[in-house]
């Protein structure tokens, strides 16, 4: 056994931190990079198929804009309670954080309901042609992320009512808010491909 010499003590260090100082933040960043790469490649596949299928869309009506616009407006507005929840958690405020989590769960549920209506108004089927296939693929990819974050938010909300928060869980709420921001931001290019692509390309 190599001989040792103590040069410091680690017992005084804090047991949690927020943002990039937190380990979980890096874990979530890793998953966001993976999913972001998936979105990018699906977007690449979209443009590859645009080059092969002309006109785009091939003899079909583009997705109806109404529910797409509603979804976009609501998901952008959801950043307000998201940012607020983030702030409450960073200040270790118990009840406001829990209220923020309830609001975010509601926002997720409302968005899923709107997404259901969007699927009804895509005006194409996944098996119609490559255009229909990629439009459905992009929509399902993004929906999976909305569902995942809703599940995660609901879980944290329930836990927050049964167990008292500790610092690590406040940090977890902040990380969840970061992930929701990713879900919002990725919708903008995906929404553009689904709704504007068939009109502009």
């Amino acid at each position: 056994m190599i001989r040792q010499r103590i040069v410091g003590d680690l017992s005084h260090l804090p047991d949690h931190a927020f943002g990039p100082r937190s380990l979980m933040w890096w874990g979530i960043l890793g998953f966001m990079l993976i999913e972001g790469a998936g979105f990018l490649l699906a977007g690449g596949a979209y443009f590859f198929l645009v080059g092969h299928v002309q006109p785009w869309p091939p003899g079909q009506t583009p997705p109806t804009l109404t529910w797409g616009i509603v979804f976009t407006v609501v998901i952008l507005l959801s950043e307000i309670p998201n940012a607020w929840t983030n702030n409450q958690a960073r200040h270790y405020r118990d009840w406001p954080t829990r209220i923020g989590l309830i609001l975010m769960s509601l926002a997720g549920a409302i968005l899923l309901a709107i997404r259901f209506l969007e699927f009804q108004a895509l005006n194409t089927r996944w098996d119609a042609d490559p255009y229909g296939s990629i439009i459905w693929a992009l929509m399902i990819l993004h929906t999976v992320h909305v569902v995942t974050d809703l599940g995660d938010t609901l879980y944290i909300t329930i836990v927050s009512f049964i167990w008292p928060f500790d610092g690590g869980e406040y940090s977890g709420v902040v990380d969840n808010c970061v992930y929701w921001r990713f879900v919002i931001l990725t919708w903008l290019p995906i929404g553009a491909l689904v709704y504007l692509g068939p009109r502009l390309l």
């Binding site: 092969h52 996944w126 042609d129 296939s133 693929a137």
Partner: peptide, 20 residues
């Protein structure tokens, strides 16, 4: 489920597979 990504008969392209 009958998507058409790689089906040339419907406008899909096998080269998309090779690129990905």
């Amino acid at each position: 489920v009958g998507t058409q990504f790689y089906n040339p008969a419907e406008g899909g392209d096998p080269l998309l597979w090779q690129h990905l």
